[in-house]
C-alpha cells in the first residue's frame, strides 16, 4: 500500500503562510521513508493531511489510490497505524488497555476481545519489549516506556502502513536502535513505513527514501545519499554542517559545526 500527495496544500486558520505548500511526493509500498526538516517545516501537518484527518486547502492526498478524505476512518485504521505526537493521559488506563485500543478498528463498538485479538496484543507487547509493563498504568510509565507502548498499539492494528511522528525522541540508544531496527525489518517484509524524525543520521542509515521539508515545501526527496548533501542541508537548516560518509555503517553522516564568527550561538 502506498501513500501519495499531489500538489497538497494545507493550512491553519489565522496563519497567512500555508503549513503545506503544493507538496507532491510518494511513499512507495514496502519502503522506509523518512521525513526530515527543521521545526515548523510542516512534517506533522504532512502526516495529518496525508492520512486525511486534516482537510487540504488544495491538491489531494491518496492512500492506496483512494482520496484520503474519502476513506471510512475505521477501514483506514485497519490498514494504517499511526503513532502521533499529541496524546493525553488524563486518566489512568493500563498499558495493556492502551495497546488493546489498536484492536478497536477491527472490533467495532461491541465485539468482545477474541483469541486472535489477544495473540496480536501479546505479540505487539513482546516486539516492543513492554510485556512486563502490561499491567502498569500509563500515568506511571517513563517517557520512553510510554512511547514503546504506543508503538505496540500501532502494531496491534496489524497495519500495512505504519506512520510515526518522532517516536524515538525520548528513547535511549538501545531502545531507539531496537525500534528503528524493527521498522527496517518490517519494511523489508513489505510494510510501508513513514518516519518523521529529527535524527538525521538515523534516517540516513535506515531509510530507503528521504523527504526534506522546508517551510511547507519539499526541498528535496530521494535516496539519502542524494538528499543529505551539504549545500542542501545547510540552506534548509541554516547552520554550518559537515556531511561525510560514516566509515562504520557506510551511510551519510551529518555533523553540525561551530557557528561562524559573528553569528549568534
Amino acid at each position: 500500500m502506498k501513500l501519495a500527495a499531489e500538489n497538497l496544500s494545507a493550512g491553519y486558520p489565522g496563519r497567512r503562510r500555508p503549513a503545506l505548500d503544493r507538496v507532491t511526493l510518494e511513499v512507495p509500498t514496502g519502503s522506509f521513508t523518512a521525513v526530515l526538516g527543521p521545526n515548523g517545516s510542516g512534517k506533522s501537518t504532512l502526516l495529518r493531511a496525508l492520512l486525511g484527518v486534516m482537510a487540504p486547502s488544495a491538491g489531494r492526498a491518496t492512500v492506496d489510490g483512494t482520496d484520503a478524505r474519502a476513506w471510512n476512518r475505521r477501514e483506514l485504521a485497519r490498514l494504517v497505524g499511526v503513532v502521533s505526537q499529541n496524546e493525553a493521559t488524563a486518566f489512568p488506563v493500563t498499558a495493556r488497555e492502551l495497546v488493546a485500543m489498536g484492536r478497536y478498528p477491527h472490533q467495532g463498538p461491541l465485539r468482545a476481545e477474541r483469541p486472535h485479538d489477544r495473540r496480536v496484543i501479546q505479540r505487539a507487547l513482546k516486539r516492543c519489549d513492554v510485556t512486563e509493563l502490561a499491567a502498569r498504568r500509563v500515568t506511571t510509565l517513563s517517557g520512553g516506556e510510554l512511547q514503546r507502548v504506543r508503538i505496540a498499539r500501532a502494531l496491534a492494528q496489524e497495519p500495512r502502513v505504519l506512520a510515526l511522528d518522532e517516536p524515538t525522541a525520548s528513547l535511549d540508544i538501545s531502545h531507539k536502535m531496537t525500534i528503528v531496527g524493527l521498522l527496517r525489518r518490517w519494511a523489508d517484509r513489505g510494510m510501508t513505513v513513514l518516519l518523521i524524525t529529527h535524527q538525521l543520521n538515523l534516517a540516513a542509515r535506515f531509510a530507503d527514501r528521504v523527504v526534506l521539508l522546508h517551510r511547507g515545501r519539499v526541498a528535496a526527496q530521494g535516496p539519502p545519499r542524494k538528499v543529505l548533501r551539504e549545500e542542501v542541508m545547510e540552506s534548509v537548516y541554516r547552520w554550518p554542517l559537515h556531511v561525510d560518509c560514516d566509515p562504520v555503517v557506510g551511510a551519510p553522516r551529518v555533523v553540525p559545526l561551530d557557528p561562524p564568527p559573528g553569528r549568534p550561538g
Partner: peptide, 22 residues
C-alpha cells in the same frame, strides 16, 4: 455503545481519529 470511542477520545482526538473514530 460509544464506550470504545470514548476510550479513544480520552487520549486525544487526533489519536482517536487515527484509530478509526469519526
Amino acid at each position: 455503545a460509544l464506550a470504545r470511542s470514548l476510550d479513544l477520545m480520552a487520549i486525544g482526538e487526533e489519536t482517536a481519529s487515527f484509530l478509526g473514530t469519526d
